[in-house]
């Protein structure tokens, strides 16, 4: 059995897999990894099943002590990870010895990293998933983000085949592709143009539920919707304040604000790696 001790938890480190599918009817959000591609690669490189839980690390990485030997893989944001103060590479299998210490620096570019181990983390499993959803204390180690002194355990099942090859895609934040949402046409022309041509930033009060955006104030007709409407991760809502909110993996399933656009699931991983306060743009292919 493999074991890791959490010396310092970092900013927000939690166990995630590909999330809960089929429970939105009961208002249970999917949760799961914010950057599916990076999590997938971490497992793939170690020969794990695709949906093996991984450790998701956000902006400030944790410090971990290995209590057993292990083989690990780090993907996603480059947080300058070091093992015993020696820099280690992302996107490759790394042999770690008992007593080794892994730490890193706050991310300067994209801001979510993933750590997979040679096996399946032992976690709580709720509604078919090991993903941590801390608002309702579901999944993960104890339903919450990792804390100091937590111990992560896994059954080590190292794959004999570690020869998986891939070309690492550098996370470059280009424009985020969006599609028209159900209430897109409630936007006056000037707001449509602002949505596409202006720069936005993700605000510091964003989290796994939603990203609050700052940019030009977007005007809309019918600011208030009386009834609650369905929303999915990636939906962009526009509250009357004029600042859009993007629903994310831990987000609600219904909301009362116009859904002006949506980010497709495959594009959402890219959005979720945009650093806080870094300007970005949306792109919409269709004419409006």
């Amino acid at each position: 059995m493999g074991k890791i001790k959490i010396d310092k938890p970092g900013m927000y480190s939690s166990i995630q897999d590909f999330g809960r599918i089929g429970y939105a009817y009961y208002a249970i959000p999917p949760s799961g990894v914010m950057d599916k591609g990076s999590a997938f690669l971490a497992n793939k490189i170690l020969g794990n099943p695709d949906n093996c839980p991984v450790l998701e690390m956000t902006i400030i990485p944790p410090q971990l002590t290995f209590l057993t030997d292990a083989v690990i893989c780090l993907t996603g944001s480059n947080m300058n990870f070091k093992i015993n103060n020696i820099i280690c590479n992302n996107y490759q299998a790394i042999k770690v010895n008992k007593g080794d210490i892994l730490n890193g620096n706050p991310s300067s570019g994209s801001h979510r990293s993933y750590l997979a181990v040679n096996g399946m983390f032992k976690t709580l499993k709720h509604y078919g998933s090991a993903s941590t959803y801390s608002n309702a204390k579901l999944g993960g180690l104890s339903g919450t983000k990792l804390k100091q002194e937590d111990i992560l355990e896994w059954n080590d099942t190292l794959s004999k085949n570690l020869t998986f090859e891939f070309t690492k895609e550098k996370h470059q934040i280009q424009a985020i592709q969006i599609n028209k949402g159900p209430e897109f046409d409630w936007l006056p022309q000037e707001s449509k143009v602002n949505l596409i041509e202006s720069f936005f930033t993700i605000q510091t009060d964003s989290n796994r539920m939603g990203a609050r955006l700052k940019g030009p104030n977007l005007e809309i007709q019918n600011k208030h919707i009386n009834r609650s409407l369905p929303v999915l991760p990636g939906f962009i809502q526009l509250p009357p304040s004029g600042s859009p909110i993007v629903i994310l993996q831990d987000g609600q399933t219904t909301g009362g604000y116009p859904r002006i656009a949506y980010i497709r699931q495959d594009e959402l991983s890219k959005f979720n790696q945009i650093p806080i306060s870094k300007p970005f743009q949306f792109a919409l292919d269709l004419e409006f």
């Binding site: 599918i21 939105a24 009834r227 609650s228 409407l229 369905p230 929303v231 219904t254």
Partner: peptide, 14 residues
């Protein structure tokens, strides 16, 4: 269908 979200105004089928 992966998800059903039913409100009194709309049903969303992912």
């Amino acid at each position: 269908i992966d998800e059903v979200i039913a409100t009194d105004t709309e049903i969303c089928l992912k």
